[in-house]
C-alpha cells in the first residue's frame, strides 16, 4: 500500500534543492520504478517527493565539447539505450540499458535512478564503472563531481550527501568507442534481475585498456582491477587467470536467485567467455 506523501514538482535544479530542504524527509523522484514499488512493499513513503522530470536540462542526452557525453538524470533508460550518440560511441552503455528490466519499465526508469538506488545488481552500473563515468550532483554546498568508483558504498547506499541531486552522468571522451561483452545469467530467458553479470570492456586506446565489472556478487557493483591488469598484460590468453582473480575478489551471498558458490563459479565462466567473445569480435574485424 502506497502511503500518503506530498508531491512537489521542480522546474529548475535550484527549485528542486529548495523543495528538498523544505521537508525533513524528502526524496527526489525520477522514473519512480524502484521508489514506488519499494514504498508500497515496505509501507513507508518519504514525506515529500520532489519530481525532477520537469527540469529542462535533466532531460538531455548531449555531447560534451571534449568528446564526452552527458546523460541527464531524467532521461529514461529506453531513451539512453536508443540514443544515436550512445549507440555509436558508448555501445556498452546501450547494451547494459537494454538488459535492465522490461520494455515498459525502461520507458520510465532512469540511469541516474538505477545508480542512486545502488543495488548490487544495477545493470547500468556495470557500464558506468567500466567507462569511468562521473556523476554530477548539485547540493546545498554547490556542484560536485563524484567518480562512479566512489559512488557505491553498500547495498542501497551511495556517497551522495543528504539533499544532493544527481543532475547528470558524464562519460569521458577517453571511453568513447569502447567495446564490451556482457555476460548475464538469469533464472529465465525473459526479464529478470541478474543472478550474476560480468561486463568486460576494452577501451580503444591506452595501455590500461581492459575493464571488468561484476554485478550481484558483492555488496555493491564492483570492478576487478587485478583482473584488468592481467588482461592488459596477457590479452585473451590471460582469460582463465583473470577469471580466477575475479572469482576470488567477489563476495557473493546466498539468496533466492542462487547460491554464493554458484555465483562465484559463474563469475569465472562468464568472464572467460566475455574475454574470448571480445577477442573473437576483434579478430572478426581484422583488428
Amino acid at each position: 500500500m502506497l502511503r500518503r506523501f506530498e508531491y512537489t514538482q521542480a522546474r529548475s535544479v535550484e527549485e528542486a534543492l529548495a523543495l528538498w530542504q523544505g521537508s525533513p524527509d524528502s526524496r527526489y523522484l525520477a522514473g519512480g520504478t524502484d521508489l514506488i514499488p519499494r514504498a508500497r512493499a515496505t509501507g513507508r513513503a518519504p514525506a515529500r517527493l520532489v519530481d525532477v522530470k520537469a527540469v529542462p536540462e535533466l532531460d538531455q542526452v548531449r555531447a560534451l565539447p571534449d568528446g564526452g557525453l552527458s546523460i541527464g538524470a531524467a532521461a529514461s533508460v529506453a531513451r539512453v539505450a536508443t540514443a544515436p550518440e550512445v549507440r555509436q560511441r558508448f555501445p556498452v552503455l546501450a547494451t547494459c540499458c537494454q538488459a535492465l528490466g522490461s520494455y515498459p519499465l525502461r520507458q520510465r526508469a532512469t540511469v541516474a535512478g538505477n545508480i542512486c538506488n545502488a543495488s548490487p545488481c544495477a545493470d547500468t552500473a556495470a557500464a558506468l564503472l567500466d567507462l569511468d563515468a562521473v556523476v554530477v550532483a548539485s547540493g546545498p554546498r554547490g556542484v560536485r563531481r563524484v567518480s562512479i568508483h566512489e559512488l557505491f558504498v553498500g547495498p542501497g547506499q551511495t556517497s551522495l550527501e543528504r539533499g544532493e541531486l544527481v543532475t547528470a552522468i558524464e562519460l569521458p571522451a577517453a571511453s568513447a568507442g569502447a567495446r564490451g561483452q556482457l555476460g548475464r545469467l538469469t533464472r529465465r530467458q525473459g526479464v529478470d534481475i541478474a543472478t550474476v553479470a560480468v561486463l568486460v570492456t576494452v577501451l580503444p586506446a591506452g595501455s590500461l585498456r581492459h575493464r571488468v565489472a561484476l554485478l550481484s556478487v558483492s555488496p555493491t557493483p564492483m570492478r576487478v582491477a587485478e583482473a584488468e591488469n592481467l588482461l592488459d598484460q596477457k590479452g585473451p590468453d590471460g582469460a582463465a587467470e583473470a577469471a580466477a582473480i575475479a572469482r576470488a575478489a567477489c563476495r557473493p551471498i546466498d539468496d533466492v536467485r542462487g547460491s554464493a558458490s554458484y555465483r562465484r563459479d559463474m563469475v569465472g565462466v562468464l568472464l572467460e567467455r566475455a574475454v574470448h567473445a571480445l577477442a573473437a569480435e576483434r579478430g572478426g574485424r581484422g583488428a
Binding site: 519512480g32 520494455y103 515498459p104 520510465r108
Partner: peptide, 10 residues
Amino acid sequence: AVNSCLVLAV
C-alpha cells in the same frame, strides 16, 4: 508503453 502502476497520477 508504461506500467501504469508505477506512474503517479500527478
